[in-house]
Design a protein around this nucleic acid. Structure first.
Lengths: 185, 185
DNA sequence: CCATCAATCTTGACAGTGAGAAGTATCCGC
DNA sequence: GCGGATACTTCTCACTGTCAAGATTGATGG
């Protein structure tokens, strides 16, 4: 148990990191503290991730792949509104991953895995909007992505509840907000 | 010059911090390095800001007040689309401030000054949307705020350029995206 | 002119952080 | 049961923000 081989240190670190980030933000993530909690030395993670940036990159890739799958799945049963709602739901359900995925200042943005995962997660939203046949498809894409990303971000940092001065059902709110939207002319 | 009284240390720290954050993100801000660059000791900032959080809080208040004024100003000459575009323009023109304003994990969100500045900056956007007389005013507010905030965020972290696979005129794009918007029914 | 006093900045110390080099234990194929 | 590859440890380093205590300066009133 206290031996040299933990068994699945890699996953333990990722799971622990996600939980800390979800609770207190990525700035509060101390790999030393996390290692102590898991019961390994403070440099054990280096074999698996290289550096702190490596841990965060892995989380970002993971998050984008998870998001991509959920978006694809909801695209088969619903229209672009459901895809958008799924985007927001993912962010609220996986705050630890979401908090890292777009933090280009903390990531190695040249990492091919990350680039690939990102394009994979953007595709379903783009395709859902394209299917609407808007007059200005790029504007429609950007608007749709912007709304759901903005709502997710503002909800996670407490701005939505603060500005509306109440606790809100973010998912329902996202659906209503997406309905304000009329890309067809 | 090398004396005990700098003259305007407070503003020098704020200006330096904003510039570092704009370039490399808030995580890259080292108060010690900044103090050395300015030519004071590494604890000189404490008299003015108390702690690192105090510096960031001051920047967040400052940013919200600047944004509030620009939004109010554009509200007198244009409709809600122009107000929205101004939101995006502010973010791009003041990335150092914008990067801090919504980072509730780094701020003292109970600070009365911050609370007040935030409500001041949200008001013009809310009022601009309200004037449209949408059937679901809250959804319209959230949608409008979400789009501009999402676009600003995605543009600043490079996601927009990455996904669209090109450099983009974000301000023009924001205007087109806001036009996809139809809160009246 | 100068004595006080508050405001401003410095010095020195501390615990915590990520990174790196070098070493040690365990597992697996043979 | 040997040898090499894999997984982890130890020790050290530079750097960070915070804190307590002390030094310097500018302003105010006698």
């Amino acid at each position: 148990m206290a031996g040299y081989h933990h068994g699945n240190l890699r996953d333990a670190i990722l799971a622990g990191a996600v939980s800390v980030i979800a609770r207190d933000g990525v700035g509060a993530l101390s790999l030393r503290a996390l290692a102590a909690e898991i019961g390994v030395s403070h440099t054990a993670f280096r074999r698996h991730f290289g550096s702190r940036e490596g841990v965060l990159n892995t989380l970002a890739v993971q998050g984008n792949l998870m998001l991509a799958e959920q978006l694809r799945s909801s695209a088969t049963t619903g229209g672009f509104i459901e895809v958008g709602v799924t985007y927001v739901r993912f962010a609220l359900a996986n705050p630890g991953h979401f908090a890292v995925m777009f933090r280009s200042d903390l990531l190695d943005n040249e990492d091919p895995e990350l680039i690939s995962a990102r394009s994979e997660s953007f595709a379903p939203l783009r395709d859902g909007v394209r299917a609407l046949g808007a007059a200005d498809p790029i504007a429609a894409e950007v608007a749709a992505w912007g709304v759901v990303h903005g709502i997710a971000t503002l909800a996670l940092n407490g701005s939505l509840a603060g500005a509306l001065n109440q606790t809100v059902d973010v998912e329902a709110l996202a659906r209503r907000a997406l309905s304000q939207f009329n890309p067809l002319r």
